[in-house]
C-alpha cells in the first residue's frame, strides 16, 4: 500500500471514530476507556512480527516483552470491560 492509501484509511477512521464516540452514552465512559485500552493493544501485531522474526536476537526479545505487555492489556482490558458492562442493569419492573 502506498502512503496516500494508508493516510486515506487513517483520515476516514478518524471521522468514524469521531461520530461513533459521540454516540457513546456518558454512563459508559469508563467502559469506553477500558475497551479502547484493550483494542489499542492491537499493537501486539507489531510485537508478534518482531518476536517471530529471526535476525536480531535483541529485537526478538524486545518483541516478546511487548507481546507480554500487550497481552496483559488485551486480556485485562476486555475482561474488566465485560465485568463492568455486566453490572449495568435496568430497573426490575
Amino acid at each position: 500500500m502506498d502512503f496516500i492509501s494508508i493516510l486515506s484509511i487513517f483520515v476516514m477512521a478518524c471521522f468514524v471514530g469521531y461520530y461513533v464516540v459521540w454516540s457513546v452514552t456518558p454512563a459508559l465512559h469508563t467502559p469506553l476507556m477500558a475497551v479502547t485500552n484493550a483494542i489499542s493493544s492491537v499493537i501486539i501485531v507489531g510485537a508478534l512480527i518482531a518476536g517471530a522474526a529471526g535476525g536480531s536476537p535483541t529485537a526478538k526479545w524486545l518483541g516478546l516483552i511487548a507481546v507480554a505487555l500487550a497481552s496483559v492489556n488485551i486480556f485485562g482490558g476486555f475482561a474488566v470491560t465485560a465485568r463492568m458492562l455486566a453490572m449495568y442493569k435496568k430497573k426490575e419492573r
Binding site: 487513517f10 469521531y18 464516540v21 459521540w22 469506553l32 476507556m33 479502547t36 485500552n37 499493537i43
Partner: peptide, 15 residues
Amino acid sequence: MIITGALVGSSGAIL
C-alpha cells in the same frame, strides 16, 4: 492498527 489508533485517538480526545 491504523483504524484502531484513529478510533482510540479520537475517543480520548473527545473525552
